[in-house]
Computed example of a mutant assay.
Amino acid sequence: MFKIIMSPYRRLVLVATTLLCLLLFIFINHKANGDNMPATSARVAQLFTKTKTICVGRFLIDVPQEAEVVYGPTYLPWPITAYPGKGESIDMVVAERLSELDAEKAWASGPLLDNDSSVGKIVNGAMPNQKIVFGVSKGSSRIYRIDSYIRVNDDLFIQRADPISSKKDAAVRELNVIAESLRSRGELEIPTQPGVCIEAGFVSDHTMPSHEALNIGVRLFEFPDVHLALSVTKKNAFVESDALEPRLRQAEEMASRSGNTAWYSRIKTLRRGRREIGKWHGFEMLARKPAQAEEGASHEFVFVSQGEPKNPLLPVLELEFHTGVKENRIGGTNPSVSDDEAVAIWDLLTGSIRVRPTSAQ
């Protein structure tokens, strides 16, 4: 018999959701009796009546059922991109890549021209449906571009490494390790073994990557102009510039120097200060920005925690929340939510972020 273990933060979100649903019930009841009641709480309650749990990296987040989740750049430790449902196209994609190699050979220089150079070669990877192609990086004629093409069931994954010549073999080993550890995953599947969720896939902890970075965007169907971006990055050292507070002070100083003090002074701060999300200790800034000449008013919320170096379960966590987004342009339309609604949505989304439970914990 399975016992469901729920973290205190998950319980908090559950309680909050229950209270919001209760508010929705009260709102509907009041409307039925002809009472006049603001719809703010009711709209947020309705939004979170049904949610789905998304796995990103080693973490989970609860989002509204109809929300669209878009996966951004993923690094394990090299960038890897998923092409769901494109597994059958692997031969065609590899052939297209091979057709580019003659031009790249002419671009190669230094060690990539040596007799033992791999430029132009294609080899089998560690897995039956994996091919590795060696070319030349666009960034430097002395650096390899190594593409690993992996078919997993109906899906295609492409991972690209750009090592210097002396690190070529090490990069190939890293690409093979990921290919060996990779399997397909449905959008709502929550794996129980240790590892990393990526778009359409899961990479088990065969060998922990030296670098992990994952990004997702959440777009709300009910409020299309409201976007949340989540980024987790495992770093090997504490990077002081990651902190949010110095960046805010710098922005204030730049506004003063550039003559934008009047506009900056009209920014409405909704919340600013220290905050904890799960085990992350960080700093957040919640503000409503006034309109500018070429940009309308919008909400901009940010949270940053510097995490703990080398700890995959406590990476750098960065969260950004915007309203008024249209065609990926902030301030392209009027915000569809009030200040209170924006804060409530932000709290419910960010408050649900937690470490994914695994069999190793």
Rank of each mutant, 00 (worst) to 15 (best):
M1Y: 13
K3F: 15
I4T: 11
P8G: 09
L14F: 06
L14T: 15
V15M: 09
A16N: 12
A16V: 11
T17D: 02
L19H: 11
L24K: 00
I26R: 01
S41F: 06
R43C: 02
V44F: 09
A45G: 13
Q46W: 10
T51L: 02
K52H: 12
T53W: 02
R58S: 15
F59V: 05
I61N: 04
A67N: 05
Y71S: 11
L76H: 02
W78H: 08
P79M: 05
I80L: 10
A82E: 01
A82R: 00
Y83C: 09
P84W: 08
K86Q: 13
S89E: 11
E96D: 12
R97K: 10
S99Q: 10
S99E: 11
E100V: 04
L101F: 04
E104L: 02
E104H: 00
A106E: 08
A108L: 00
P111R: 03
L112R: 00
D114V: 00
S117H: 00
S118E: 01
G120L: 04
K121H: 13
A126G: 13
A126S: 15
A126H: 04
P128I: 07
Q130A: 14
I132A: 06
G135R: 00
R142N: 09
S148D: 08
I150T: 11
V152M: 05
V152G: 02
Q159S: 15
Q159W: 07
P163F: 00
S166Q: 10
S166F: 10
K168E: 13
E174D: 11
N176S: 09
V177L: 11
V177W: 01
E180G: 07
S181L: 02
L182C: 08
L182K: 00
G186K: 06
I190S: 04
P191K: 03
Q193T: 10
Q193P: 04
C197M: 07
E199N: 10
T207I: 12
A213S: 14
A213M: 07
F221C: 14
E222A: 14
F223G: 07
D225H: 10
L228N: 02
L230R: 01
A237V: 09
D242R: 01
E245A: 10
M254Y: 10
M254F: 09
R257Q: 14
S258N: 12
T261S: 15
Y264W: 12
Y264A: 15
I267P: 03
L270H: 07
R271D: 15
E276G: 12
K279P: 04
G282K: 00
E284D: 14
E284M: 14
M285P: 01
A287P: 01
A287R: 06
P290N: 05
A291E: 08
Q292S: 15
A293W: 07
E294A: 13
A297T: 14
S298Q: 09
H299F: 14
H299P: 07
E300C: 06
Q306S: 12
P315L: 05
F321Y: 13
F321N: 01
G324Q: 05
G324V: 11
E327A: 14
R329Q: 15
R329W: 11
G331R: 01
P335M: 05
D339A: 11
I345N: 01
I345F: 09
W346E: 10
L348E: 01
I353P: 03
T358S: 12
Q361A: 13
